[in-house]
């Protein structure tokens, strides 16, 4: 059943955000934050941030070895939320200028896969 859905069933409400934010690779997730609009970030953050603890608990309970494609999309979406949260919670109005400067900082290696 999970192969027919974009996200695990209990996170189906977040499916509208999969296409935009469930990115594979740390650099792609950081890049997505960089090329998003404030409206996109705020909508994503408002819908997903509150689900972060539940999503991590769900994924932790399954463990990496048991994650299917839908679980992996949920993982990638939450990792992307980490980047976007810095814009929403920390940078605020400084984000557009910050994004320009941040483009010089190239992510080359991460345990998750750069």
């Amino acid at each position: 059943m999970s192969t027919q859905t974009l996200l695990p069933e209990s996170f189906a409400a977040l499916e509208p955000y999969v296409a935009g934010w469930a990115r594979n690779g740390s650099a792609a997730r950081a890049g997505r934050r960089g090329n998003s609009t404030a409206e996109e970030r705020e909508a994503f953050y408002a819908a997903v941030a509150g689900e972060l603890p539940r999503a991590l608990d769900y994924l932790d309970a399954k463990g990496f070895a048991a994650l299917d494609d839908a679980d992996q999309r949920l993982m990638n979406m939450m990792l992307c939320l980490g980047h976007v949260a810095l814009a929403v919670e920390q940078q605020n109005d400084a984000e557009p200028r910050h994004a320009r400067d941040r483009a010089h900082m190239h992510i080359t290696h991460t345990p998750a896969g750069a």
Binding site: A30, D60, L67
Partner: peptide
């Protein structure tokens, strides 16, 4: 764990 992956990516960012 996925939680560890999340924390590490967040602190790098």
């Amino acid at each position: 764990t996925p939680s560890e992956r999340f924390a590490r990516e967040y602190f790098m960012a």
